Simulated scan of single mutants.
Amino acid sequence: MNTRPPTLEEVAQRAGVSTGTVSRVINNARHVSAKARRAVEIAIAELGYVPNTAARSLATQRRGAVVLAISSDDPALFANLFFAEVITGVNAVIEETDLQLMLVLAASERGRARLARVLQSRGVDGVMLLALKENDPLSKMTEESGLPTVHGGRSLDRTPQWYVDADNRGGARSAVEHLISSGRKNIGTITGELDTHAGTSRYLGFREAVVLAGLSDQRVAHGDFSEASGAAGMKLLLDDHPDLDAVFVASDAMATGALAVLQEHGKRVPEDVAVVGFNDIVTAKHTQPALTTVRQPIEALGREMTRMLVRLLNGEQPTSLILPTELVIRDSA
């Protein structure tokens, strides 16, 4: 006999509403239609749902806001389509709730101080962290605050309790295996930042694939996920390894820079040098040639982070997620 108590999601499904609506009804919040309120009340009665009293107590003291803190103070951040898509996903879920979204760029001392003030004043109910680096002070700061916190990705020095990440290592490995299966032997890589989990995981995926195939893993240039660093890395690889016939680039932005340099050097893509990127941002299909890349569900990353945080605020215990990646084959490899 199953004696497991019903969950918030089951009440929402029975009532035909969102979990946020159920939470608002339970907490006597405003802005709930009479029809939705009645449907939730019926579902609660039919399922015998008992609200988490501790969570309900916390809910009555809520500020009605969450913060997305990004470990970057780059003024060009919003030109980076990866972050733009993540924020789109975050906002899509926020719009289903009564929560307000606060965005903080928190890599500089000033940005971290701003976030610290928000946390110390309990100006928000929960936190989402993105683009953390090794030993990033934001992790310790949010941990000390005691606020529910969800990480977008993982950091190298610790695995947080709640996170949403993509299969960076497996995705990189599939990209390089594709290059190998097409007959490429002299394969290089332009890495992302190796003090990030994503950068290191994609580099390890590259190394695994070439080493298992009996190929060299020494054709390496280091970047920082930006288009400029991709161009610089591509120049370095061409200078140091004139026999290069393929390159796995750890982000589409860097791959765009690499393609421009290959064109400047008279290299045909993919005939002379095949190129594979990572992310599948919206511009990947519009490069010349169209970029073969590893698709990670970027917007879904933002949505799932936010859903996980909402569940925490509702007193639930969600499970961390690793989202699958997919190789998208176009013209560059």
Rank of each mutant, 00 (worst) to 15 (best):
P297L: 13
L238E: 06
Q296G: 07
R207F: 13
D217V: 08
P289M: 02
R295C: 02
T283R: 01
Y203W: 09
T287W: 00
E271Q: 14
A221N: 15
A221L: 11
S201L: 10
E208Q: 10
S201D: 14
V247Y: 07
K285I: 02
L262D: 06
I190E: 02
Y203E: 06
Q263L: 08
S201I: 11
M234C: 14
R303W: 01
V210W: 01
G277N: 04
V261W: 00
M254E: 07
T292E: 04
T293Q: 09
G223S: 14
E299W: 06
H222R: 13
T189G: 15
L237T: 11
D280M: 02
G223H: 09
D224A: 11
T196N: 01
T200E: 12
V220L: 14
V282T: 04
L291T: 08
D272N: 12
H286Q: 00
G230E: 03
I281K: 01
V269S: 02
T292Y: 06
E271T: 14
A228P: 02
I190M: 08
G266R: 05
A231C: 13
G188M: 14
M254F: 05
A228F: 05
L204R: 09
L194Y: 03
K267V: 08
D245N: 14
F278V: 13
S201C: 15
V273F: 05
K235I: 12
R207S: 14
V276H: 02
R207V: 15
H222A: 15
A209K: 01
S226E: 05
F225D: 00
D240I: 09
T292F: 05
I190L: 10
E271K: 12
M305K: 01
G233V: 12
E304A: 10
A300N: 06
A250F: 12
F278R: 10
V247K: 09
L212S: 10
H241E: 13
V249Q: 02
N279A: 13
S251I: 03
T287L: 03
A284T: 02
I298E: 00
Q218P: 00
V273P: 08
A255W: 05
M254K: 03
A228H: 03
A284R: 00
I298R: 00
V273S: 07
R219V: 13
G266C: 10
G230K: 08
T292D: 07
S229F: 03
L236H: 14
R268E: 05
L259D: 01
D272G: 12
T200W: 06
